[in-house]
Simulated scan of single mutants.
Amino acid sequence: MTDHDAVRDLLAAWAFGALPPAERQSVPAHLAECETCAAEAARLRETVRLLDGPAMNGTPPPATSDVLSAALGARPAAPRVAAHAAPYAAAVAGVKALLPEAEGRWSTPVVHDWDVHATLAHLLAADEPLAGRLGIAPRVPATPVPEGMSWGEAWDRRTAEVIAHEHGRTPAQTVGDWAAQAAALLAAPEARVPELAARATELMGVRLPVADHYVVRAFETWIHTDDIGRALGLTVPPPPAGYLGQLVRLAVRVLGLALGPAAPPVLFAVDGDQQWVLGSEDEPVHGELALDPVDFCLLVGGRHTPDQVPHRATGDEGAVRNVLERAASLSWL
């Protein structure tokens, strides 16, 4: 790899203020001499500026948990994306705010058998299906999927493949690839034009409008940002209320589809949002269930179990338990 190629791989990390100390002089020096890389760096920096807004310009300083929480909690969405892509833009900005805290701690265990580096590599792999559907080339060369393999098996296989590939590279290079792919997703016409995002497509075994798949990406990005924060001993706040409501409403829709029309009906409420009747429309409500929105998302994201998630319930315990268990079964994260 030439010096030019090496710097090009680091441009997104530079734009996000996430370069390792060893590269903080070589990249600016190259940009001063290379017009092509300088133009690409300016484009990426503008994308980061739009993601961050005025409250987050520049690299966050080494932060205490309180300062980091304030930075993450204040993150706005990119002003040039449509409402359906705004939660993902905010989630990307949240990862960016957290990354400086991973410096020197990339091997910290996070979740499953992943360290911080592998968790970011997983996010790179997780964004790929939507990116590929929108015509964005993969950052990691892909191998053909055997015929007949289920989406779940293909998902696990690709995640392992990308993590193995990225563990052979530096964290800064992984940051660069993840950031560049995220920027491409947010620059795609489908992120900016609701009409283009209205078409349905099947990803991860679920057929949804492209707009909803952007919300799915926001959901997973936030869950893994929270995973990394917990591993590093830092508090990661939930998404801003409006975006959290979008995550909740999509999760409820998917949960309703998973339960099907024959399930015993349950009146389901999420604090601060609205109520839904899940299950059969032909019977009286069997029970009532209420959860906090963050707890509900953590249940759907596989971070709470039906037994441990805080909730309030009345009526038929079996019907309520069915909703909790089906919500927990939705997780693939």
Rank of each mutant, 00 (worst) to 15 (best):
I163V: 15
R312F: 01
P306D: 01
A164W: 00
A89V: 06
S150P: 04
S150A: 12
D66Y: 03
A29N: 08
A231K: 02
Y88I: 05
A187E: 13
R199V: 14
A137F: 04
P171F: 03
A241K: 04
A179L: 06
V285M: 03
A187F: 00
R199C: 01
E153I: 01
S26A: 15
L19R: 01
Q274A: 14
R24P: 10
A93F: 09
V294F: 04
E161D: 13
P306E: 02
R45I: 05
A89E: 04
D113T: 12
L31M: 06
A90M: 08
D127E: 14
E166V: 07
D227S: 07
C297I: 09
H30N: 05
A102V: 12
V300R: 03
L124P: 13
A184V: 08
T2Y: 07
Q181G: 08
R80A: 00
P54S: 10
P284S: 15
G152R: 11
H30Q: 15
A319E: 04
D3R: 13
T64S: 15
G176E: 12
S26L: 13
E153D: 14
H167R: 15
T235C: 02
T305P: 06
A29H: 10
G233T: 07
A126Y: 10
V254H: 01
V309F: 07
V145M: 08
R217K: 12
E103R: 13
P209Q: 07
R133P: 06
A6L: 13
E128I: 01
A231V: 10
A188H: 08
H84G: 03
P79C: 06
S280I: 07
A55E: 15
L257H: 00
V216S: 03
L203Y: 05
P240S: 03
Q274S: 14
G302T: 01
L299H: 11
A142H: 14
A22K: 12
W106G: 10
S69R: 15
E283P: 06
L232H: 05
V140D: 11
V110Q: 05
E161N: 05
A131Q: 08
L278P: 02
V95F: 15
Q181W: 05
R49V: 02
V81D: 01
L120F: 13
V27S: 06
A83K: 04
H117S: 02
L19Y: 10
P21D: 11
P306R: 11
D127F: 08
T59Q: 13
E153N: 13
A63T: 05
W222D: 02
A179Q: 01
E101H: 14
Y243R: 12
E325F: 01
L234V: 09
P62E: 11
L44E: 10
R45W: 05
L259F: 01
A90H: 09
A32G: 15
R312P: 00
V215Y: 01
I163A: 11
L50V: 08
P144V: 10
E46R: 13
A183K: 06
E101L: 13
W14E: 09
C34S: 14
H311D: 06
A211N: 01
